[in-house]
Design a protein around this nucleic acid. Sequence first.
DNA 1: AACCTCTGTTCCGGTTTTTGGCACAATGAC
DNA 2: GTCATTGTGCCAAAAACCGGAACAGAGGTT
Lengths: 260, 260
Amino acid sequence: MTTLSSAAAVLRCYSADRCDLTVTQVSGLLGMPKSNASRLLRAMAACGLLEPVGASKRYRPGLLLHEAGAVFRTSSALTQRADEVVARVAAASGHTGYVSRRDGVEMVAVTDHPGMHALRVASSIGRRLNAGASATGRSLLARLPDAEIRALFTPFPTPPSANAPSNADELLRRVEAVRRRGFACAIDEANRGVGAVAVAVGDPQTQSEVSLCITFPAALMNEAERIELARELHEGAAAIAALTGDARFPAAFRAEAGAA
Amino acid sequence: MTTLSSAAAVLRCYSADRCDLTVTQVSGLLGMPKSNASRLLRAMAACGLLEPVGASKRYRPGLLLHEAGAVFRTSSALTQRADEVVARVAAASGHTGYVSRRDGVEMVAVTDHPGMHALRVASSIGRRLNAGASATGRSLLARLPDAEIRALFTPFPTPPSANAPSNADELLRRVEAVRRRGFACAIDEANRGVGAVAVAVGDPQTQSEVSLCITFPAALMNEAERIELARELHEGAAAIAALTGDARFPAAFRAEAGAA
DNA sequence: AACCTCTGTTCCGGTTTTTGGCACAATGAC
DNA sequence: GTCATTGTGCCAAAAACCGGAACAGAGGTT
């Protein structure tokens, strides 16, 4: 465990629910002696990676991380293009849209556009989503060969709800449906009452892939509307795929109903 | 120079203009042997702090930094409140607004709201601004005692243009005007053709301070409109100051013309 | 007010990582 | 094909890091 990896581990302790940390918390979460945690946090604060909250008992991420994060967001042309498409579709529909990436078996939102309706899905930046139990996750998984998906999902994570695939075979069936249709759809899986449609696109040049996703209150959308949203996402993503020369993009769009 | 501080130094090399780095660049910028830079970048990538761009010759900030940066942005209640006010005023006027913080003699934008007009000031997230030569900077400086400002600005940085204060005495005069009026104003200082008005507010509890700023094409605004914008910012900031119990907030608003 | 608990800091050595110079490999330009 | 440039292993010396335990401070309780 080098200092650097410890520092990274500390950063991973932060989330939308835990936006500041104390020495004892870090010591507990990472199983490290308090003396170590104390020095590490202080060193990170001295570098600008963290900053003390108020008097100085709690630490939160520092300005430096904010700036580096901003660079991350603007550096990827793929993300930017995807963001434009999502912004357009989200604005037109009034629902929440976001661009996300896969990190192992979890999804991380990269940019988002909160919806305009009174009832809307909250921003998902800072919250991780199960890749197998979400439209955005399955849209990206569909770009991988089955064997790789199976390896990734061994052991299989406990599904967050009854609607989510509960084993690898079921997940692969859904993923196959995504490949056939050209888009993914999830209703009531990771979050109760929430539905989503998603389309993935990649840039072979930078070997990066993102998912374009629109998420909405499941009760407010019927099948036809969902498919219409998916079609708009697919159109936008197809344009990006053409630009980047993405060979794995599912060119066909099939208006089939049901989850995938 | 510990590994951690080297890593932080690498992150500081990134900016809006330089969104990916190579081993040689880092080695040159930080004056470190190439072997070191090579290992450091690889270690940072292994931790998720950086990620390789495409094939693997260039590195850019990684997902982890994006997530930690998001936590930073949402963690500060002060920033959020300030952001709401700026968002409202920016939307009403159609001009670009942002919330920023001071880091030494530089300002860093924390959140921003691009304007709606065809001619508008571009987003400033990722770009640093001279604190002495900007409305947003002087609004925050006005909260410090003169002696501290003088210490901070010794030696005095070269002013970016003729309209910016060129020595400490001139800066202190401007800052005094900010204290009297309750808002700061800069025309054609850090950026040609750009004007801005700003108001600062703090939270004694967390000892953090932010500046609320609206920026606009200087040619499109007259004195009365500038003062009206400043008044709106000041009203919003006053509400925040009341909530946080900020004693240093300049309660009075005086509609005086000219830069400050 | 005195007590107690819980958090955070400091200090020590022994151990591990890091450092920097160099030679070598890989890449791309001419 | 040659050359210039960039990136990567290797090594001994040097520095940083680790874990334990003792110490200091803040907050709450009796």
